[in-house]
Design a protein around this nucleic acid. Structure first.
Length: 480
RNA sequence: GCCCCCGUCGUCUAACGGUUAGGACACCAGUCUUUCAAGCUGGCGGUAGGAGUUCGAUUCUCCUCGGGGGCGCCA
């Protein structure tokens, strides 16, 4: 029986978790959870300079919001520098790597020449054959880098997503693995770390495809088997260009603050480049885990469709218990002065029923907050468009609302059937359609032309609030 | 310029070489209804183009066109 897989997510600390990175993390995580494997988190921070704790913080926050948990780490690539150097030493000793004394200016020239000649590899290999004793001696006084000696032939691998991928080694230059300052470069460090962490599957963005042959050759030179590779397609903006800030939000944190549920985000991200066997689209995280497999990931880049994200998020909101939604939305309602902590505590069942009413109508939590506002005893603002449409003739509206108010204030039962029949009877007495009462009433008690069913709204609002809203609406109309 | 990869409705996608090319978002219409959603029903819309292999091609091969990624002492 095969060992359980070990995968890793290895972001560089750019300061936030990008949606592309988030999806890569998600795929790694779903795979690990589905297979009962291990997810390692490794921060690719060869740059020691910048305050990494600050920058990695944002990434960890993003991951934890999404619920992506790791089993090992976070490790820091920079911590492995001695091991990286030891690996470079081994490669040097075996002749798989060599010292290069070329200057940046010389390299610049070589690049020009290569381009002119239509060659893929820029470096011309001029330090390849410097005898090792000579190189050793010069290294004492001259600055040098260490380059990997690319062998002849082809490098081929079976990519889980990309299938058979083949590169001609002659198209790949002898790349630098150790800088002049003695620090390792990415390609060396990645291999060294993945080896150290016994990574079995490298699941990463397709932008790494062209690094893969280099890394495979390092594995070989070290005498070790490369892991299985799985390159997931990139995410594009609506214009087909690589997703960037000008397309709008790219950091997952921004989606969090604009009211997306992590389950909706995960669902959407999972569907970007992956699909289950059947046509199921709305899935909770555990269902994603149950159904996920790397071999159903698509090859071509996917466009980030914000509309669909919103729809999916709306589905998740509707499927989330009102209790849970109350928790998610509570603090911002308090912060914006809509309610207080005490009220939410003492009227929690009531608040649940409010959410029951509005949650199929909201696509984001922010929208949910908006729809919930009128139910709290705060002043409502009358939407100008609604006023224009349903309060066209103030005297008429005042008259109707007044009559309605006195009906509603009578001792009758405050239930839906009763309210509806009351209103309809009144409308008939006044010789108008029920809508002529309902619409102005809606504007009066919600401030808007749009709301859940008016009778449900009144029930949940309660008689007291409804009557006072009508009062202030009448005052507002008289003042106008 | 060179290297790698990709091309199914506008978008996300399904389809052992044999389906009337399926689903979803968006859009349109209908239904429900006091409004808006949700729900339900229906509609619009696609295999980039051209050769070839095959009884049969979305699927395999080649070319063209189009798109993406990579060509750092960045990761």
């Amino acid at each position: 029986m095969a060992d359980s897989p070990r995968v890793r997510f290895a972001p560089s600390p750019t300061g936030f978790l990008h949606v592309g990175g988030a999806r890569t993390a998600l795929f790694n995580w779903l795979f690990a959870r589905h297979e009962g494997g291990i997810l390692v988190l490794r921060i690719e921070d060869t740059d020691r300079e910048r305050s990494q704790s600050e920058l990695t913080r944002a990434i960890l926050d993003g991951l934890s919001w999404l619920g992506i948990t790791w089993d090992e780490g976070p490790y820091h690539q920079a911590d492995g520098i001695e091991r990286h150097r030891a690996d470079v030493r081994r490669l040097l000793d075996s002749g798989a790597a060599y010292r290069c004394f070329c200057t940046p200016e010389q390299l610049e020239e070589m690049r020009d020449v290569a381009r002119e000649k239509g060659r893929a590899a820029a470096y011309d290999g001029r330090c390849r054959d410097i005898p090792s004793d000579e190189a050793e001696r010069r290294a004492g006084t001259e600055p040098f880098t260490v380059r990997f000696r690319m062998p002849g032939g082809d490098t081929v691998w079976e990519d889980i997503v990309g299938g058979t991928v083949r590169f001609k080694n002659s198209d790949i230059e002898d790349f630098i693995i150790l800088r002049t300052d003695g620090t390792p470069t990415y390609n060396l460090a990645v291999v060294s770390d993945d080896l150290e962490m016994r990574i079995s599957h490298v699941v990463r963005g397709a932008d790494h495809v062209s690094n893969t042959p280099k890394q495979i050759q390092i594995y070989r030179a070290l005498g070790l088997e490369p892991p299985i590779f799985c390159h997931v397609p990139l995410i594009m903006g609506p214009d087909g260009k690589r997703l960037s800030k000008r397309h709008g939000a790219t950091a997952v944190g921004e989606y969090r603050t604009s009211g997306f549920l992590s389950s909706g985000m995960n669902n959407f991200l999972a569907l970007l480049g992956w699909s289950p066997k059947d046509d199921t689209e709305v899935m909770e995280v555990d269902e994603l885990i149950a159904r996920f497999s790397l071999d159903r990931i698509n090859v071509k880049p996917a466009v980030f469709d914000h509309e669909k994200l919103e729809w999916l998020n709306g589905q998740h909101i509707a499927n989330t218990s009102s209790r849970r939604l109350a928790e998610l939305v509570g603090s911002t309602l308090i912060k914006t002065g809509v309610t207080t902590e005490e009220e939410l505590k003492t009227r929690s069942e009531w608040f649940d029923s409010v959410l029951d009413l509005v949650k199929t109508r909201a696509r984001t939590l922010n929208e949910l907050c908006e729809r919930v506002r009128p139910f709290f005893s705060i002043d409502v603002e009358f939407d100008p468009a609604a006023v224009k449409k349903h309060w066209k003739h103030p005297e008429e509206v005042i008259d109707r609302l007044s009559k309605l108010r006195s009906e509603l204030s009578k001792e009758d039962e405050w239930n839906e059937e009763e309210l509806e029949s009351q209103l309809r009877v009144l409308a008939e007495l006044m010789g108008v359609g029920a809508g002529k009462l309902i619409h102005p009433l809606r504007v009066a008690i919600t401030g808007s032309a749009v709301s859940p069913g008016i009778f449900e709204v009144m029930i949940v609002m309660g008689r007291e609030l409804v009557l006072s809203r009508i009062d202030s609406a009448i005052r507002h109309l008289e003042g106008a």
